[in-house]
Amino acid sequence: MSSSLIITGVVAGAGVTAYTTGCGKGFQADRATSLAITTTSTVAMGLGGTLMNHHTMDEIHQKYGSAYIESMSDEELVEALESLNLLAASSDEEKTSKLV
């Protein structure tokens, strides 16, 4: 979370600085330049937002994942482990047959 905030701050700050430098101090930037600067700062905000959302999505995934596993009975956990072992064994067999 903190690294996402730092990245958001830096990138958005760069965009905003570019915008204010270009359009501030009474200087009227030409239309194409101001559009380019506005787009950069919007993309910077969006990128920062995406990075933060990605971190929040990880937490959402974790919430779903842990709730599902914790809801399984002891017997279901054992069966699930056996099915994973079978899946691992069958994918090993496939790799071996491909090599042959």
């Binding site: 990880d58 995934h61 974790q62």
Partner: peptide
């Protein structure tokens, strides 16, 4: 820690 260790598995469940 859960996200680091089981992030991909949790995403499949989600």
């Amino acid at each position: 820690k859960d996200i680091e260790e089981f992030g991909q598995a949790s995403e499949v469940i989600y």
